[in-house]
């Protein structure tokens, strides 16, 4: 049997606009969520995913046919797409939801991504995405998407190599107490962990070029997906404030304080 000509890879990278991790988050006065009127940027794990896709192209050259980034979010999420495009992705898809809409849940997001994968001409061979978003920390979307698509999955990747000839991905993933080496048949969903790479700065010439790259705008209903949450958020509160310590003058006072707090000497 003659080997078939190697397939050219189409890579899809879903990205999310999140509250920047350097921002101190505050619960909103209605206790329905957090104050979102703060600085946002790309979810750091997604940034790693974009970087990995760009690095794959740098290594595999023409074997990577396209890198497409997709985001689901309010109008301002377009900025996040531009950042990804400036890092080296080719084109973007913005599934726009109104500013007032609730944040989509993992299952909804996975269904939107499924619809996007299915409508891509030439298909999608590799989906690289963050293992979780730092705003809700749910960490489910990648796994759900792989299941819906019936694709291979490797989560929390710290190393990724793609063998185009064999049409497989060799992935090292982080597991409790060590690492695991996986060989995944493509198409596959890979979720990224922190050790995978260190994302680059977008250079000025690339930022300028990114402004001219195409972004396709879609809505969830056009894709036939209902993003209405199935979970209900009852109340969001801050963790109890940490009570500051006190100072004691001497050992006796310390012992007295400890007793007050219910600590007693071990009976021997």
């Amino acid at each position: 049997m003659r080997p078939t000509a190697a397939r050219l890879l189409n890579i899809l990278v879903p990205v999310k606009r999140c509250v920047d991790y350097a921002v101190k988050i505050r619960v909103n006065p209605q206790q329905t969520g957090i104050d979102t009127n703060v600085k946002h940027s790309m979810n750091p794990f997604d940034e790693i995913a974009v970087e990995e896709a760009v690095r794959l192209r740098e290594r595999l050259k023409d074997a990577v046919k396209s890198i497409k980034v997709v985001t689901i979010g309010p109008p301002k999420s377009a900025e996040t797409l531009r950042t990804a495009l400036a890092m080296g992705a080719d084109s973007g898809i913005h599934v726009e939801i109104p500013d007032s809409a609730p944040s989509p849940e993992p299952l909804g997001v996975a269904r939107v991504l499924e619809a996007i994968v299915k409508r891509q001409e030439g298909g999608v061979d590799l989906i690289i995405m963050g293992k979780q978003a730092i705003d809700d920390d749910l960490g489910q979307t990648g796994q759900m998407l792989a299941a819906i698509l019936g694709a291979s999955q490797a989560t929390c990747a710290s190393k990724l190599e793609v063998d185009v000839e064999k049409y497989v991905a060799n992935v090292r993933t982080e597991i409790d107490g060590g690492a695991e080496e996986l060989v995944c048949k493509l198409p596959a969903v890979i979720t990224t962990d922190l050790r995978l790479n260190e994302p680059r700065y977008a250079s000025l010439p690339n930022i300028m070029k990114a402004k001219k790259k195409p972004i396709e705008k879609l809505s969830a209903s056009e894709l036939g997906v209902d993003l209405t949450p199935v979970l209900e958020t009852i109340k969001v509160t801050e963790p109890p404030k940490r009570v500051g310590g006190g100072k004691v003058e001497n050992v006796d006072q310390l012992v007295a304080k400890l007793k007050e707090a219910g600590f007693t000497a071990l009976s021997t």
């Binding site: 991790y21 350097a22 921002v23 600085k39 940027s41 790309m42 750091p44 700065y201 250079s203 000025l204």
Partner: peptide
């Protein structure tokens, strides 16, 4: 060339 920060972290 140059770089333009894309996030508070950068």
């Amino acid at each position: 060339t140059g770089v333009l920060s894309q996030s508070p972290t950068q």
